[in-house]
Design a protein around this nucleic acid. Structure first.
Lengths: 212, 212
DNA sequence: TTGCTTATTGGTCGCACACTCAATAGCATG
DNA sequence: CATGCTATTGAGTGTGCGACCAATAAGCAA
């Protein structure tokens, strides 16, 4: 007997079940896209009936927003930990740039692209995107600000510099679904690093040489 | 009697009808988004039956790709005319940057964002996006190349510079659906101009002072 | 063990979508 | 005016979606 047929109900606490649903939806969002978060698809993922998803999220749009926020929020925590224990701002920024440039970051780029477009139609998602944009910007600005205070970076306006780096990252992320995204001049792939080094008054290579 | 009820058939040549359909679909794409291009929606726009759209585009994905290509292609022709009669590269680039930064460009930004995400799922659209990316890049590179030849611009690699400007434009375009897209530091809105002036060795203001 | 709360199911409804195809009628041609 | 070609219609198929709700049973508490 295959385990795919569930004839026995499994009853969980509302909190646990809700978290499970959000996690499953986040997985679907990362792998297939936010529009693939449907009652049926998420239910299948958890081997429950679609009605159960509706029970926890009467409006599916709220689940979409929650799934997006969960995926992107935890990614930020890994990229720029709030408590950066014993690492210089330079190393932190270098690590951030190394990860956001790597191939493994493509799923996150796709999710950002996805969310920014879909938020055109879904208010709940639009609010969540705004929150996450603020969070990413604030976290990056903080790293830069500390770097300036400690004399590692030099910029008149950490906020603008942070936005500038994020804009370049977003601009490259726009190309994530293009077939020719991986090729192209190497100088283009290094654009975020180049931008950061220039805007922070760092020597070339300061943010790309063996950071991790 | 309202004109919304069409009881009399109007028979047109295939070429004219096809062009009409593409134009209507492009209008829908610009105003409401590519996923709003449905057989019913486009048919309603032209006051015909949905089956007629299917007749000209047996696969709706091809109509979506065609509508996108039409809208974005004609926009490029207006932004960077192929035959730039009697205008300096500086004026051309200034005009391009002025228009792509303006509020009126938001619909085009939305369409690019839309297409780049949707091309994840629709192969026909993905191919069209690649074609238009090449076209925009080539056209901008050409302006820069001529500017370098005529001594107005200074850059070692016109292609990389063109891509760099487009990446910044795309990065800002990502924010088009965010509620806080219009506010934010002025320096951020001027990022494309700043980038272009820096990369082309121009004095500050060379690309933003009364171009048109 | 019994009973009760409520998490979970199963079924249904209405809607919008792409796609198909035989029947119809506009219109150019003779 | 009559005729033939074909652009256009009308009707229908099947799919997947969100939402709703009464019935059911899991598992905790008494």
């Amino acid at each position: 007997m295959s385990s795919s047929v569930q004839n026995k109900r499994i009853r969980k606490s509302p909190g646990a079940r809700r978290a499970e649903i959000v996690a499953a939806a986040a997985g679907v969002a990362l792998a297939e896209g936010l529009e693939c978060i449907t009652l049926r698809r998420v239910a299948e993922e958890l081997d429950v009936r679609p009605g159960l998803i509706s029970h926890y999220f009467p409006a599916v749009d709220d689940l979409v927003a929650e799934a997006y926020g969960s995926a992107v929020g935890s990614e930020l925590d890994e990229l720029l930990p709030a408590d950066r224990a014993g690492a210089t701002p330079t190393r932190h920024l270098a690590r951030f740039l190394a990860r956001t440039t790597g191939k493994a970051y493509d799923d996150i780029s796709r999710l950002w692209l996805n969310a920014r477009h879909l938020s055109r139609y879904r208010p709940a998602l639009r609010d969540r995107v705004a929150v996450q944009e603020d969070a990413w910007r604030d976290r990056l600005e903080e790293v830069i600000r500390v770097g300036v205070e400690e004399g590692e970076f030099h910029t008149a306006d950490p906020l603008v510099t942070a936005i500038q780096i994020l804009v370049v990252l977003d601009g490259l992320g726009m190309l994530v679904n293009s077939p020719s995204a991986d090729d192209g001049p190497p100088a283009v792939r290094r654009l975020p690093v180049t931008t950061a080094e220039r805007e922070l008054g760092l020597p070339v290579g300061a943010l790309s040489d063996a950071p991790d």
